[in-house]
Amino acid sequence: MLHLVVCIKQVPDSREIRIDPKTNTLVREGVPAIVNYFDLHALEEALRIKDEHGARVTVITMGPPSAEKALRQCISMGADEAVLVSDRAFAGADTLATSYVLALAIQKAEDEWGPVDMVLCGKQTLDGDTGQVGPGIACRLDIEQLTYVEKVEYLDTEKREIVVHRHLEDGVERVKAKLPVLITALAELNRPRRASLPGLLRAARYRPIVWTTNDFPNIDRSKIGLRGSPTIVSKTWVPEPKQVNTEFIEGDGPEAVAQALIDRLYATDLPQKLGWT
């Protein structure tokens, strides 16, 4: 049976984050925590493969204990098992340290439940927003990566081949690769399902499996958490809006205003730069 691992992250709903105008800092209080939007599409794709081919779907997140709630949501949608990789030592990780721990967790999931055929991630998160963790995991596991997938055209479990459509700025690329692969999901990939009633019942009782540093005997402790993260946030600030002296153009009716605007634009260097005569 196929074994699919979905990596999900619990994130603050960034649309709800406000800046405190007095202190110029983020107001995080009361901001709801949600499963990263794209990760639900990654999970849905895994569940579709499960429906069609039969598969075991393992969901993994690295995060604080409160991320249990996000894992329960995945169980309610139909994931088989959910793992919370959680330890104070993992806190403060950048993408390099995150991909290390997630790769170790995926290897451990292989040891527990069999070889992994596909890892599914979201395109990027709503908070860190880097899109670097997927490629980082693929690189560490030494498997092929197919990023920005908007469609899985087919999956041949006999030949162990997959064909996907990658959505790029200038078009769509059809790519064929051999399993195992890591894919990162776009929103166009599918529509995440709602939880089923049995799913909700199972989720209500479900306790995620928790792995701490002690569950990874060979972990290099200098490569995790803040210490294992080469990137340092040296400062954050709220950018000053650009200062412009706006000239308001007024006139007697739209024609006069339009004429005045054109006169202003022709008086700048635009005619020369744009070849107006």
């Binding site: 993408t95 927003d129 670097q132 997927g134 990023t147």
Partner: peptide, 23 residues
């Protein structure tokens, strides 16, 4: 920070390894 650039940079930075700032 295009799709291809992020795909490639993420792989390279992990391999080296080094820090990578996005976007």
């Amino acid at each position: 920070a295009t799709y291809t650039g992020r795909d490639l940079a993420g792989a390279i930075a992990t391999h080296l390894p080094t820090g990578l700032t996005a976007d």
